[in-house]
Each structure stands twice: as C-alpha cells, then as structure tokens.
Nucleic acid binder design. Structure first.
Lengths: 149, 149
DNA sequence: CTCAATTAAATCGCACACAATCCATTTGCA
DNA sequence: TGCAAATGGATTGTGTGCGATTTAATTGAG
C-alpha cells in the first residue's frame, strides 16, 4: 500500500482533464457572466437565447425555435409562457395548421433588442479575445457537438 | 422596406454565431451522450462528476467538492443525499470541525469505478478524435472559462 | 373517403443550478 | 475570556432540461 497524500488515486482521471467537464463548467461560467447583465432586462440566459432567435426572425413556431436551440417543447413551453406573462411575446395557433403555435414579439419584446447590444459588448469585453481566436475555438466546439449529436 | 424571406433581420446575430451558445449546446450534447451509459449505473451526469471526483480522492468535504466542480452546497447537498440514498456514499460530520460534512465512498460506490472505465471508453469512441486534438480544444475552453470566472 | 399513423404542443415528474437566507460551529480580536 | 465575524451546510423558491406520456390536428395509405 503506497501512502499518498489525501488518498489520491492516480489511476483515476480528475474531472479537470475531461473535455466534457470543461464545456460543462465553461457554459455555466458564461451563464454567470450573463446573469447580472440579463437581470437588468428581466431575462434568464435561456430566455435571452429565445429572444435573440426571435429578433433574428420573428414569427417562428415552437418546433423551429427548438431546432435552433436544441430544446424541445417540454422546456420551451413553460419558458415561452413566462416570456408571454412578461409581455415580451404572444403565442397564437397557426390558423393554417392548428397544431403549431406561432411566437411573435410584442412591441415591448422588440424594443428590448436595443439593450441587448450593450449586453453583447459587455460580454465581448469580458472575454477579451480577438474575434478570430474566438471563432476558432467556437468552430472546434461546434465540430465536437455535431460529432456527438 | 426590403422584403427578405421569413422576416430575417441581418443586423441581429444568430445564436449560431455566439460562442456562449456553442458551449451551452455542446455541454448539453455531452450530457445526452452520457445519459444512456450512465443510466446503466443509475447515475446522472452531475452525480457522475461527483463520483469521479471521489474516486480520485475519497473523504472530501462538501466545500472541496464544490471548489472542484464549481458548485455550491445548494446544488450539492440534495445531489449528495440522493447518492447517499442510493448507497454509494456516506455523509458524516467531521469530529475535528463539526461544520464540515465528509463524503466517503461506500463499498458499492467504490465498486462502481470498474464500470466507469467502460463509460469513458464509449465517450472517447463517440468523440472520435485523437487525444492531442481534444486536449488542445480543452485548453482553449479552460482559458476562456478562467478569464470570465 | 376513412381511419390509423404522424406531427406539434402541452403536461408531468424528477434532477439539477443558483440566489437568498438560515443555522450551527469555529475563529479571532478586543 | 467573550462575543462579533467568518465559515460550512442546509433550506427555500424559481427556472431550466429532459424522458415519458397525453391531447389535438393533420396526413396519407387503402
């Protein structure tokens, strides 16, 4: 029996060497970074992602939003209800196909886009890397995500 | 008014160009990849991270686990209670400092380590990249996480 | 034309995350 | 020594995520 300090087992990988943990903890760190900024807009981070998606293209249904964000209706429906309750969006059935629910920005929801520009600037500043370096990392991460999806 | 297809606003960034979204979606993709493998062990992904940490070094308190995993007691306490209920760990106050709760693997918790090796092999195979490429990406992601922490 | 298969949302149950707060123990300084 | 500050966990409340199931609308094969 070798007596190592604090019972360390060197045959077992630490979480710190696992790529999945890097992504897990980095994603959480970003959520934390966004939180104080988004608090001012009354949004959570996933709600912000939905708003960004709608600012880009208004009038999408739940399925389309889900394809973009990799989320399904069991996550989106309650989230969208909260945005609705906050007066940022409306949810109406598509008359052409009553199965679909079309999400549309309200005036208030549209107006919030102005403040979002500040948020993005703050994030860029916090990351503090040039656009090329960021895009290179992003491309690598996307490659892995698409491989395991 | 330019009439673009589907009301697309090109002045707004899509989530697909945001690094934070890449990390967010890649982290979720990993959780999905792990799920069927961990289901066989009766673990969730965060529970697995705790077990990996304990397999590496047994007998840590909640604070230490939290520092490693970037989680606090409000997340860890309920999670550890579930591992306790599942017979994988024990939770006992430190007699030297009654504020601390020491987490120790049970026989059953220790035994699970054997199966974990299979899990890791499956994950590596699914990612399908050489160790060097993975470590390069991991290093970049860690750099960003540490910058924004 | 009809009814079974498919599709889109919603619902339910469980397990994270995390801010805010509370409680018990320990520490440290006046 | 005594007591306020600090520390480690636990608790509460809100908001995701997601598997499994349900409901309603549409589609398509016979």
């Amino acid at each position: 029996m070798t007596d190592t300090p604090s019972d360390t087992d060197n045959a077992v990988p630490d979480v710190s060497v696992m790529l999945c943990f890097s992504l897990y903890s980095a994603a959480h760190a970003f959520t934390q970074l966004y939180r104080p900024l988004l608090d001012k807009l009354g949004l959570t981070y996933p709600q912000y992602l939905v708003m960004v998606t709608l600012w880009k293209r208004d009038g999408q249904n739940v399925k389309e939003l889900g394809r973009t964000l990799f989320l399904d209706s069991s996550t989106l429906t309650p989230l969208l209800k909260r945005l609705d309750a906050g007066g940022l969006i409306t949810r109406t059935r598509n008359p052409k196909d009553e199965r679909e629910v079309i999400i549309r920005l309200t005036e208030k929801g549209h107006a919030l886009k102005t403040h979002a520009a500040d948020v993005m600037r703050c994030i860029e500043e916090a990351v503090g890397m040039d656009a090329e370096a960021i895009q290179a990392i992003k491309a690598s991460v996307d490659t892995i995500r698409d491989k395991i999806k």
